[in-house]
């Protein structure tokens, strides 16, 4: 899963500190213009580094927090097949979190520091995960819409200028595409099921449609970082371009399910060859972003509770590793380093 189009609140890129920096920065931009990948040991402007750390960390946090709304249905999945598929999906998200934290670590920040920022409420994650999963159909809707939106956002990141992030995204995109198909298949089964199942599917679509459109972030006119991120090839398409692409792909999928989208203004524009939606309620987005959504407290509360409850376990692992440092106990040592 994914983070919404990224954060417009960080430090503005600064002008180079010296003439030497200016020259390095010029060469750096030339490499990017030639579509070369930037690797961890290469020189990079501090603002590029900070933008990437912020973006990759938000993405990693989103994967980890995103385990919670879907994890909410693992113990209640309706069949054993659905249960194992859902566990595997949530595992994939945890795995994505791991590669992304590792990618961020190549920029000189530790996983521990990033997690501290998340738990202290200083880091963002995608606001979509602050919505509740109320019925089984929400698991279908998340796979179809949320992972579908994630794919639109992430495919261009496979060509991101920063090598470790781009490479992590290749694998992540493959898995997301699988998740999206699984989610759609749940929706199809419900939409073709009994009246109660159909209602469940429609209700889930009603609740997830608008938050999914908001995942692409504020409209281009409001998004301050787009231009610089595009020059650096961290971002390749604007929020509105990606959102439109998602709408154009998803509306026919809803029609195939014979479910209705909760937007009376939705129409096909023949001249533009696009589906045009009604206005997005950005005040809701801002409310959720500021921490007042339906589950912000629960999601962060669950992460904090797990972290606190796990403290004695991590301390035990570290103490054991200290006592047995000379022994070949790869697992314990790896663990001690991770904390």
């Amino acid at each position: 899963m994914y983070t919404q189009a990224l954060d417009s609140s960080g430090a503005e890129p600064r002008s180079p500190a010296s003439a030497g920096d200016a020259e390095r920065e010029r060469r750096f931009q030339e490499r990017i213009d030639r579509d070369e990948k930037i690797e961890p040991k290469d020189w990079m402007p501090e603002a590029y580094r900070q933008t990437l750390i912020r973006q990759i960390a938000q993405h990693a946090h989103s994967e980890i927090v995103g385990m919670l709304p879907e994890g909410n249905w693992i113990t209640r999945a309706p069949t054993l097949r659905r249960k194992v598929v859902l566990i595997a999906k949530v595992q994939d998200e945890g795995g994505h979190g791991m590669y992304l934290y590792s990618a961020a670590e190549t920029l000189g920040v530790s996983r521990g520091e990033l997690i501290e920022q998340l738990l202290a409420g200083r880091a963002k994650y995608s606001s979509i995960f602050n919505y509740p999963t109320l019925t089984w159909a929400d698991i279908g809707a998340i796979g179809w819409l949320v992972d579908g939106a994630a794919i639109m956002n992430q495919i261009p990141l496979c060509r991101c200028s920063y090598g470790p992030y781009a490479r992590a995204m290749v694998r992540i995109c493959k898995e997301e595409s699988f998740h999206q198909r699984q989610g759609y298949e749940i929706m199809l089964t419900l939409a073709r099921g009994t009246g109660a199942q159909r209602e469940m599917a429609q209700d889930a679509l009603n609740r997830w449609w608008w938050p999914s459109l908001m995942m692409f972030g504020p409209s281009d006119t409001e998004s301050v970082h787009t231009a610089q991120s595009m020059r650096w090839k961290i971002k390749r398409f604007s929020n509105d371009e990606l959102r439109q692409r998602f709408i154009d792909v998803t509306v026919p999928q809803a029609q195939f399910l014979d479910l209705s989208l909760p937007d009376p203004a939705l129409r096909w524009d023949e001249a533009a060859q696009h589906f045009i939606t009604g206005p997005i309620d950005w005040s809701e987005f801002q409310t959720v972003l500021k921490g007042h959504g339906p589950c912000n407290r629960e999601r962060l509360g669950a992460r904090r509770a797990a972290h606190e409850a796990g403290r004695w376990v991590r301390e035990a692992a570290a103490a054991y590793a200290d006592k047995h440092r000379d022994r070949a106990g790869g697992g314990a040592e790896r663990y001690a380093q991770a904390i």
Partner: peptide
Amino acid sequence: LCEWVGHAPALEEDLALGNIALDLIGQAR
């Protein structure tokens, strides 16, 4: 073990407990 998913002491343990749950439910099937 499914109850642990998302709540384990560290990410590695979360993934490990989930993997064991997957194996066990696979055996059960």
